[in-house]
Simulated assay, not measured.
Amino acid sequence: MGGGSARAGALMTVTAMVSVQLGMAVAVKLIDHIGSDGTAWLRLAWAGLILLLWVRPRPSAFTAKTFGMCVVLGVVSAAVSLFFMASLDRLPLGTATALEFLGPLTVAAAHGRGLARVLWPGLAALGVILLSQPFSGGVDLKGVMLALAAGAAWALYILLTQNVGDQVAGVTGLAVSMPIAGLVSTFTVSSTVFERMTWQVVLIGLGMAILLPVVPFVLELLALRRLTTAAFGTLMCLEPALAFVVGFTLLDQELGVSAIIGIFVVVIAGVGAARSGGRQADMHIEVG
């Protein structure tokens, strides 16, 4: 693998993560107007429509079993977005992202060997304590629980994606699961959301869906052709730190020293898990 190709892959991966966090910054702004449930629904609805029109999956590509798995994957994808958007209503972007990141980190650590199965989850747990400060009451505990629920759903998403990816070619499975996620999230939206919906909000939602998942997904696919699994997984572990930077610069969200240290402890744990785990490339970033 050439150095130029690897550098291009690394740049694509970082750009994809920045796109994700910019999309999340847009989401934080939208939450003030249409709530976390409305924001999750708008993103999933647009993303599902874009992927459905782009890929146009054929029924012949599925069996009854694989289609059912895609439906389940869509339900789980909706859970990831709904829980995470709700956590953003209570927590800074960097804190919520680091807590959610524990889901894929756990999956990576579970594929590790020997000491890695204990070391990296233990280090991540230390990071969570620094982030949530459970004994000081400094962080919204409900927000922490919502972010951790999003992480648990993300871990399940990864396992399901690996299974679907082994049986359904390309992105066909995602082109079914994402519209299902949009449909599922519709049932969680309060009626007041639609009363507050304007064309401006709808178009902002379209931009959010392009930032997350369309642009990151394309860049991720291109990057995976240029990077090893370990390199890709390690780069993705920088996402909580990028979330802190975006939250600080664009949303005026400041964190205490303890929380900042906690984010970087989670990043280090993620890097370690990525180096020791397997199939880390399946830790898709576009579900966010």
Rank of each mutant, 00 (worst) to 15 (best):
L160I: 04
G207F: 08
V184S: 04
V171H: 02
L146A: 13
L183K: 05
V201W: 01
V176Y: 00
V189P: 10
Q200A: 09
G173V: 03
V128R: 03
T192L: 11
S136G: 15
F187L: 13
L148R: 09
W199K: 08
A169R: 10
L123N: 11
P213Q: 02
A153Y: 08
G137P: 06
T188H: 05
T192W: 12
D166K: 13
A149D: 07
V139E: 03
V171I: 09
P213T: 05
I129P: 04
L203N: 04
V189L: 12
G165L: 03
A149S: 15
A147F: 04
I158G: 02
S136L: 08
Y157C: 07
L174I: 04
T198S: 11
A153E: 13
G143S: 13
L159W: 08
L212T: 04
L159G: 11
S136F: 02
M197I: 11
T186V: 09
F135I: 08
T198P: 03
M208T: 11
A150R: 08
V171Y: 05
G122M: 10
G122N: 03
D166C: 06
V189W: 06
L206Q: 02
S177A: 13
L160W: 02
L130K: 06
L141Q: 13
T192K: 09
V184N: 06
G143V: 07
L141R: 09
P179L: 07
F187K: 06
L212G: 00
Q133W: 01
S177Q: 09
L206E: 01
P213V: 00
V176Q: 00
T172R: 12
L203V: 07
G138L: 05
V139I: 15
F135E: 12
A155C: 12
L156E: 10
A169H: 14
A152D: 14
K142Y: 13
G143T: 09
Q167G: 01
L130M: 13
A155Q: 06
G122S: 14
G138M: 11
A181Y: 00
A155K: 04
I129C: 13
T186Q: 11
G127H: 00
S132D: 04
K142V: 15
F135N: 09
L206W: 01
M197W: 08
Q133E: 15
N163P: 06
L156A: 15
S191E: 15
M197E: 11
S132A: 15
I180N: 06
P134A: 03
S190V: 09
T172S: 11
M208C: 13
S190R: 12
